[in-house]
């Protein structure tokens, strides 16, 4: 499982996890260019999976009052208010430096009575990436996390003892421990539904097909076509994220079409599975252990007093 050095060879994670003749790998393609921010996905996920409330908290982050993916929000819709990037607009004020989201303070500063700067409002429904090389899964010491036959990553709630290791090992900041429960929770890609041939609740609820569910190979083709179409239509900023099997996590089972840099949406620009470096880590630990032993030996043999 640690042969992670090779960035170029995609592999089927289900087979890798020991499934014999698994069904095709299933996943999500979330096309944020058609997301309308209705949050039906968030609500459908909560209803289907019985996820408790994340708290009644006005965050002032545009219309995002969930804030992040958490143990109590397995889908999270991000809202980003920003000036339109230069390429897409004829009348952009080039002196305004684009920063993604303002780091603090209110999100407004572009509109005046004399005419508004062209403006856009990005929306994106985020979810667990079901990584090909999943940090959470690699580090789980109890086997609570496992790879399903569909290539997805699922927590077994009756096994997890809440050690919290997976939380720190996820390069996307997805998996999270529920405070009053002690265990970790995240999207299961509706293991119960897809096992019964159904579509995951969030994708089923999405009115605009922003969330597309299906065999990953098909989704990748569709996504490539969509990006090409958007480029043709003058949306050069459209790009895929997490689709590439040669990236630091071996590609995501849930990947995205974005209209801006990943970090603008709260995504890491170049995620890497922590265990990528694990062999080197063990080597270094071995050296340090030897040094430690040596230190002790020297201490006892190195003098008379």
């Amino acid at each position: 499982m640690v042969d992670t050095d090779d960035r170029s060879t995609p592999r089927d994670p289900a087979t890798g996890a020991g499934w014999v003749d698994p069904p095709p790998r299933m996943g999500f393609f979330t096309d944020t260019s058609v997301c309308i921010g209705c949050k039906a996905c968030e609500v459908a996920c909560k209803e289907w999976n019985g996820v408790p409330t994340s708290g009644l908290d006005l965050l002032g982050m545009s219309y995002d009052n969930t804030g992040a993916l958490t143990a109590n929000s397995w889908r999270h819709v991000a809202f980003i208010e920003q000036p339109r990037p230069a390429a897409a607009s004829e009348q952009t004020d080039t002196t305004t430096q684009f920063l993604g989201m303002p780091q603090s303070g209110p999100p407004g500063r572009t509109g005046t009575a004399e005419g508004r700067n062209d403006f856009r409002w990005l929306m994106m429904s985020d979810v667990c990436k079901h990584c090909t090389r999943a940090g959470c899964l690699d580090v789980c010491p109890t086997g609570a996390l496992f790879r399903t036959e569909f290539g997805t990553v699922v927590v077994q709630e009756d096994i997890c003892n809440g050690c919290g290791y997976c939380v720190s090992a996820c390069p996307y900041g997805v998996i999270d421990r529920r405070v009053d429960d002690g265990r970790v929770w995240k999207c299961t890609l509706c293991y119960d539904r897809i096992g019964a041939g159904m579509t995951p609740a969030c994708a089923q609820a999405c009115p605009t097909e922003s969330i597309q569910y299906g065999p990953l190979d098909e989704l990748r083709e569709r996504a490539a076509a969509r990006v090409a179409t958007l480029h043709e239509r003058g949306v050069p900023e459209a790009r895929l994220y997490g689709h590439d099997p040669s990236d630091g996590v071996g590609g995501d089972g849930a990947f995205f079409l974005l209209l801006d840099e990943p970090e603008v949406y709260g995504l890491p620009p170049d995620p890497q599975v922590p265990t990528h470096d694990l062999p080197k880590m063990w080597k270094r630990a071995g050296v340090a252990a030897l040094a430690m032993a040596a230190g002790a030996v020297v201490a006892f043999l190195g003098g008379k007093r």
């Binding site: 968030e42 609500v43 909560k46 209803e47 009644l56 209110p106 500063r109 509109g111 005046t112």
Partner: peptide, 17 residues
């Protein structure tokens, strides 16, 4: 609850100006 938490408070939108 799953709806209430999505817009948990009465608010008014105003322009920066």
């Amino acid at each position: 609850a799953p709806l209430a938490e999505l817009q948990p408070e009465m608010f008014v939108e105003v322009s920066p100006a």
